[in-house]
């Protein structure tokens, strides 16, 4: 199995979205391919960084602003 084909499955593999056949194929390949193993680690690292990004705080006054705008909208209707 070529590395290219295996790597196209990595994204789904990280999300447990590969079927049993593909999952086994990937696991087998990783046992003897250090390059693909490193590639998977890199993808995982990027995924972790994205997941751990701090959530921005909702600015104060957002709900009040929305309330005012909704009032205007309901007057239009």
């Amino acid at each position: 199995m070529k590395c290219f084909r295996i790597r196209t499955l990595f994204s789904a593999f990280l999300d447990d979205m590969t079927d049993m056949h593909d999952t086994e194929m990937i696991k087998d390949h990783l046992k003897h391919c250090i390059c693909c193993e490193r590639e998977l680690e890199n993808l995982k690292m990027c995924q972790n960084i994205l997941e751990q990004m701090e959530e921005p705080k909702l600015p104060e006054g957002f709900a009040l602003d929305l309330h005012r705008r909704l009032m205007k909208e309901s007057c239009k209707a």
């Binding site: 959530e55 921005p56 909702l58 600015p59 957002f62 709900a63 929305l66 705008r69 909208e73």
Partner: peptide, 28 residues
């Protein structure tokens, strides 16, 4: 949902001002 929608808009727009406007627009 206000916090989540604001976060989503912030991820797309990459700045607070645009995220605020887009999130308000979303609810309207």
């Amino acid at each position: 949902y206000q916090g989540k929608v604001y976060t989503l808009c912030f991820r797309y727009m990459a700045n607070e001002e645009d995220a605020y406007d887009m999130a308000q627009e979303t609810f309207i």
